[in-house]
Amino acid sequence: MERIYVLKTYKLFIGGAFPRSESGRVYAVKDFKGKHLANTCQASRKDLRDAVVSARSAFPGWSGATAYNRGQILYRMAEILEGRTDQFIAEISALEGANPKAAALQVEESIDLLIWYAGWSDKISALDGSTNSVSGPFYNFTIPEPIGVVAVFAAAKPSLLNLVGAMASVITSGNTAVMVASEKFPLPAISFAECMATSDLPAGVVNILTGVSSELAPWAASHMDIDAIDAAGLSPKVLKEAQIAGVGNLKRIKTPPNIKSPKRILDFMESKTVWHPIGI
């Protein structure tokens, strides 16, 4: 007798759990030939709101953890991803139409990128921080600090690499993230959420939504509790609308060009300058 293949239900990743969309909506994901591959949740603005609430509540713990600890957890994600390489190769090949070799390369690059950003966690403040000369008896120094809750609209191809790079660059400094996966290639994002759920990552530090970016972007842009947006996955038109809607809380909206760059980490950090009297 032929065995019936058990299909996977792709769900959202919010606050460490895997809920369905509160709206009950799903949309069809097609493979590169246009054939139906799977159904995935179409997140609503309320899912976005819930994700922001959990990201915000995870922020004090995550930004307060030692940089070393954050790096260890990112490293752990890489370990878990390494062990599940095959699954990602299959998903990437089906979605992006990449040949298995190219797909394998993308997964390897993603793993290496995680390690790379893990290393930056305790070095970024040395790169960007400074002691400043001032005309008075003060120590004056500037350090970069995480900006808060960052919404990420991940760019499309290469889908896993873009998602992993954007995620790691945002959270390595202590931010928490609400990520909207690429609309066309959402499956690796949700599978990667399963890696994160088993990597000692505290609940809520990364939340992943799948759905229609142009539907969620205006709500993210006007949301007063999102501090910055990585808009790499937004079209120029939606990006412009987001920039207008984002002025309410002077939201920082960036489209960092390189997936692998310390500049990318700094895009979502703020500088704090401290004055301390000398001799006290």
Partner: peptide, 9 residues
């Protein structure tokens, strides 16, 4: 207001 506020408000 028509948009989401945050706990800092």
């Amino acid at each position: 207001d028509g948009f989401y506020a945050g706990p800092s408000y």
